[in-house]
């Protein structure tokens, strides 16, 4: 990192970058998601047609990515709150980041079968 910048690198900065990027991604997804859900006011067929595309293998992979973004943002958000409100938070921010990443990996492994299972069955046959 060059001198004369607020960007300090290391865990603190990169977790902040990731928190920011995932926050923006989730917001854009939420906008589209409210629009697609609004189709229940148009007709059952219109809604079911759109949801059918959400069940395709390609979109299943995107859903897995969405779950990854939300889980990281949620867990790291709790870490940010702990850093701000818990007296010892700033001192343990690094350990808390590794805890967040560990939990994130465990949950992401756990999400493989529920989120991607149906896609795998479709692509490779059941």
């Amino acid at each position: 990192m060059p001198a004369g910048t607020l960007y300090r690198g290391r865990e603190g900065m990169w977790s902040w970058v990731a928190h920011r990027v995932t926050g923006v991604l989730i917001f854009f997804f939420l906008f589209v998601h409210v629009l697609d859900t609004a189709l229940v006011r148009v007709s059952p067929e219109a809604y079911d047609d759109v949801v059918a595309t959400y069940k395709t293998p390609l979109v299943a992979v995107l859903e897995y990515g969405l779950v990854a973004a939300i889980l990281f943002h949620a867990l790291n958000g709790l870490r940010v709150i702990a850093v701000d409100f818990w007296a010892k938070g700033p001192r343990y921010q690094k350990q808390m980041l590794w805890t967040v990443l560990g939990l994130w990996i465990v949950l992401m492994v756990g999400a493989i079968y529920p989120v991607l299972g149906h896609a795998a069955r479709e692509v490779f046959g059941s």
Binding site: V40, P44, Y47, D48, V51, Y54, K55, A60, E63, V67, I70, L71, A74, G77, L78, A111, P114, V115, G117, H118
Partner: peptide, 24 residues
Amino acid sequence: LVVLVLGHLLIQLVLDGGVSKIGF
């Protein structure tokens, strides 16, 4: 939001057949 959003993901994408069950 941790409770509401993660609960929402659990219901919509994991439990009871995951995304396959969603429809009108």
